[in-house]
Design a binder for these strands. Structure first.
Lengths: 148, 148
DNA sequence: GTAGATGCAAAACCTTTGCATTTTG
DNA sequence: CAAAATGCAAAGGTTTTGCATCTAC
């Protein structure tokens, strides 16, 4: 890892460089926009953001950058309740997302008891768990409070 | 973990009727095909199945039936690791799926310790959990055994 | 008999790909 | 300077929609 500035963007740039990938202008822009979102976002949304920021980026580039970030573990793909695809920024360590259905912000939650539950599954069913994904939907503290 | 062999079709038909929806021939066919799968399946797959069974069903009908089944809680949409959409048949009771990446079969797993973990999240972060989805990927007992 | 479902085909969508041009290291 | 990334636009695949016809109740 290299630089790690406060806005989270630095971590992205550092990770890209560390992976031996080129740190290009579009990738910096995408990293900045991803870091700016504190909730989930779609590829289309990022394109709009870029355009709005006066720095339009091609669809292909957005998707390629997102692919790169995903392979580096910087973002993760999630499937919203409505069936749409979206992405969320995430830390390298394993965790899950609690997504607010009202404001769209996501909170990271750690494995907690889940790890044990999965281990139990392995023992009971002979299932060898290779990966798992947990998505939690609901109202965050703010939205829950304002909506009674 | 539940067994889904034989004709879970009856349950589908019953649920459709109970919901006041019409029990049509295409819906019966889709229900039968869904029940026949013990793993996840895609909309396209069902169309192929129908065609292969000598009872072709239009794409639109497949999707509409799948929508209906989803709203009735008979099937659930899942997002595979490769980003594709698929569906899995499910019991009305809450549970999750352990999907084998080798043979594609899915095993139902119950909440287990997960419920408590989520309750803890609610207490700690003030997050009001409305829904959650857990997808586990790995090798089932059979595939795990045959692959070392 | 009537509301609702079906099927077809076209439209909408989202994501990926090819290739010439530009940028990075 | 060479290798890799970008952008455009077109291709590819999937899901949705409109409308006439047919079916379940």
């Amino acid at each position: 890892m290299t630089t790690r500035t406060g806005d989270g963007t630095g971590a992205f740039i550092g990770a890209i460089a560390d992976a031996g990938e080129r740190v290009t202008l579009p990738r910096r822009a995408v990293a900045r926009m991803v870091a700016a979102h504190d909730g989930h976002f779609t590829a289309a949304q990022l394109m709009d953001d870029a355009a709005a920021a006066g720095e339009p980026i091609g669809r292909a580039t957005i998707f390629r950058a997102l692919d790169l970030f995903t392979s580096l573990g910087l973002v993760e793909r999630v499937d919203l309740p409505d069936g749409n695809h979206a992405f969320v920024a995430c830390e390298a360590v394993h965790h899950h997302h609690a997504i607010c259905t009202s404001c769209g912000r996501s909170t990271d939650i750690d494995d907690g008891a889940l790890g044990e539950a999965l281990a139990a599954l392995g023992r009971q069913a002979g299932f060898r768990v290779m990966a798992h994904r947990l998505e939690v939907f609901g109202l965050c503290a703010d939205c829950g409070a304002s909506k009674s």
